[in-house]
Structures are given as structure tokens and as C-alpha cells.
Computed example of a mutant assay.
Amino acid sequence: MSTQPLVWFKDFLGVGYRYHDVYMNVFPLFPDKMAAFKLWNKTIDWWPDDKIKLRFVEDGDHYWFILYGGGDYKKDNTCFVKKVPISENYQRFKAGYEKKAMLRFGIYKENTDPKKKDKDGNMKKFELEVLKKAKSVYDISFVQMPDIARDSVEWQCIQQNQ
């Protein structure tokens, strides 16, 4: 990882999961497509797949989503963190991710087009778009808060972002 200090980006809406691909997808959710695209290009696009670390630190009925990685030649060292409630989707991902997941970004925004309707004919209130760019993540861990080492990146991240 770079010698630059870690910068924790937490200004995203939450975390989404998709199960219908060969490998499950996990994606931080953003309200703005262009901002998400620029952030991907500035950070994750440069990360080698085998250096990406995805951590889920469970803390009661919530978990910390912690994503970091990096390349040696990039000066940016942005990482991602968000405390989110444990959900059925999270539990399903945890049970079935098969030691690999696809990392993508998702756009979750309010629908303003009255023509877009759900299967029952009701206007959709929100819509989700998953961006095409993806990275493979192999280093995925699920841990309980009391079990993380006090000198770990995850512990430091949680302490800085409580």
C-alpha cells in the first residue's frame, strides 16, 4: 500500500448487493453518477485486484463496511467506510459470496420520470443503476468488533469515523 496516509471517504449513501451474476456484486451507493464515476477513476480504477481488501466488522445490529487497497504508483490513498444496519441482503451476501465478489459502484436516486413504473404499474420512487466498471475482490473478511486487533487498519478506521 502507498506510504500516503489513509483518507477515509464516507460520503456515500450505503451499500448494495446483487446476486444474479456469476459472482455476487457489492457496491457502495452514490446519489450522483458523474461524481461516482470520477471517484472510481481517481481511486479504485488504480487498485490491483489482489490488493483490494473488503472488511465487514459487525457491531451489534450494524456493521462497518471498510474497503481499501491501493497501488504503489498512485499518490491518492482514499479508502471507503460506512456504518450500516445489518440487513437481509447483507446476510445473504455473507452466506453466499464464495470467496470472491465483484466490486462496483451503484447510483441510487429518486425517480423523476413518471413513465418509469414497477411491475404493478406504480410509479417507481427510486431507481438503481450499477455502473459497468468492476474489480474482483478476493480478500474479504467478516469479523466481530471485539475480535479486531487494536493495531489494525480496521480498528483505526472505526476509531476515526465513529
Score class of each variant (00 low, 15 high):
1 M>K: 13
2 S>C: 09
3 T>E: 15
3 T>F: 09
5 P>Y: 10
5 P>K: 14
6 L>M: 15
6 L>F: 11
7 V>E: 11
7 V>T: 01
9 F>K: 12
11 D>C: 03
11 D>M: 06
11 D>A: 07
12 F>S: 00
13 L>K: 11
13 L>V: 11
15 V>F: 01
16 G>V: 07
16 G>C: 11
18 R>G: 13
22 V>M: 09
26 V>R: 05
26 V>G: 03
26 V>H: 09
28 P>D: 02
29 L>V: 05
30 F>C: 07
31 P>R: 09
32 D>G: 02
32 D>S: 01
35 A>R: 09
36 A>E: 03
37 F>C: 06
38 K>E: 14
39 L>D: 10
40 W>L: 08
40 W>S: 03
40 W>K: 04
43 T>K: 08
45 D>K: 09
47 W>I: 01
48 P>D: 08
51 K>Y: 05
51 K>R: 12
53 K>Y: 10
53 K>S: 14
54 L>E: 06
56 F>I: 04
58 E>D: 13
59 D>F: 00
59 D>C: 04
60 G>I: 00
63 Y>W: 14
66 I>Y: 05
67 L>S: 00
67 L>C: 04
68 Y>F: 09
68 Y>K: 03
69 G>Q: 10
71 G>A: 09
73 Y>E: 11
75 K>V: 02
75 K>L: 15
82 K>I: 02
86 I>W: 06
86 I>G: 13
89 N>E: 07
90 Y>L: 06
91 Q>N: 13
91 Q>A: 06
93 F>Q: 08
96 G>E: 15
100 K>M: 12
100 K>E: 14
103 L>V: 00
108 Y>W: 14
110 E>L: 06
112 T>K: 11
113 D>K: 13
116 K>R: 11
117 K>M: 05
118 D>Y: 11
119 K>Q: 12
120 D>K: 12
120 D>A: 12
120 D>H: 04
121 G>Y: 07
121 G>H: 09
122 N>I: 08
123 M>V: 13
125 K>I: 02
125 K>H: 14
126 F>M: 13
127 E>N: 13
128 L>Q: 10
129 E>M: 02
130 V>G: 00
131 L>V: 01
133 K>H: 07
136 S>Y: 05
138 Y>V: 04
138 Y>S: 15
140 I>V: 10
143 V>L: 07
143 V>H: 06
144 Q>P: 12
145 M>R: 07
147 D>C: 03
152 S>A: 11
154 E>C: 01
155 W>M: 05
155 W>L: 01
156 Q>R: 15
159 Q>Y: 07
160 Q>P: 00
160 Q>H: 03
161 N>S: 10
161 N>P: 03
162 Q>D: 04
162 Q>N: 10
